[in-house]
C-alpha cells in the first residue's frame, strides 16, 4: 500500500505569526494612542479596524495551513480523504473511495495558460480534485507518481 499526505506550504509558524502580528500591532498602537492622546481620537477606530482585518487575515492563513489530503493506493482501491480546516458544524472531512482498476488520473492544464493546473482523480463518472493548494510543479510531480502507481498491476513491485 502506498499513501501520500498533502499539506499546503506555510512558512509562518504559529510563533512567528504571533511575533509578526505583535510587531505590526505594536507600531500601529503607538501611532494610534499617540494621536488619541493629542485629541485625535478618530484615528483609533481606523487603527482598530485595521488590526482586526490583519488578525483575521493571519488567522485565516494559519487555519488554511492545517488542511490535509491523504491518498492511499492499494491493490484494490484508491482512497482519498480530505480534511479541510473546520467549517462550523462539520469536521471538514470528506472521504472518497474508488476501485483502483477504474481510477484515472488527469492533470488539466490551466485555462487560460497562466492559471493553475488541476489534478483530478476520477472513476465511473465522478471525480475528485486533489492538491489544489500545491504549486503547479508539485502537482505535476504528484501526478507522475500516482499515474505510475495506477498503471502498475502489482503494487508490491512498484517503486516505493
Amino acid at each position: 500500500m502506498h499513501s501520500f499526505e498533502l499539506r499546503p506550504n506555510s512558512s509562518l509558524t504559529p510563533r512567528a505569526a504571533a511575533w509578526f502580528y505583535g510587531s505590526l500591532v505594536a507600531v500601529l498602537l503607538c501611532v494610534a494612542i499617540g494621536c488619541t492622546a493629542l485629541g485625535f481620537w478618530p484615528v483609533l477606530p481606523f487603527a482598530g479596524l485595521e488590526a482586526a482585518v490583519l488578525l483575521g487575515a493571519v488567522r485565516w492563513v494559519q487555519r488554511r495551513a492545517t488542511a490535509r489530503e491523504y491518498i492511499r493506493v492499494d491493490d484494490a482501491s484508491v482512497v482519498i480523504e480530505k480534511c479541510r480546516p473546520g467549517r462550523r458544524g462539520d469536521d471538514g472531512r470528506m472521504a472518497y473511495a474508488f476501485q483502483r482498476p477504474w481510477t484515472r488520473i488527469e492533470l488539466r492544464r490551466g485555462r487560460p495558460a497562466h492559471w493553475p493546473s488541476r489534478l483530478l482523480l476520477s472513476s465511473r463518472g465522478r471525480s475528485v480534485e486533489i492538491g489544489a493548494f500545491l504549486t503547479d510543479g508539485e502537482r505535476q510531480g504528484l501526478k507522475d507518481r500516482l499515474a505510475e502507481l495506477l498503471a502498475n498491476d502489482d503494487l508490491s513491485t512498484g517503486r516505493n
Binding site: 500500500m1 492499494d74 491493490d75 484494490a76 482501491s77 482512497v79 480523504e81 462539520d90 472531512r93 470528506m94 472521504a95 472518497y96 473511495a97 474508488f98 476501485q99 477504474w102 488541476r118 483530478l120 472513476s123 465511473r124 463518472g125 465522478r126 471525480s127 475528485v128 480534485e129 489544489a132
Partner: peptide
Amino acid sequence: MSTTTHDHAGHNHDHAGHAHDDH
C-alpha cells in the same frame, strides 16, 4: 481494504461530483 472498494463518497458525497468545478 476490501470493504471500501465500492465507489462511494463518505460524508458530504453530494459535493463530490461538482466541488471542483467552481475553480
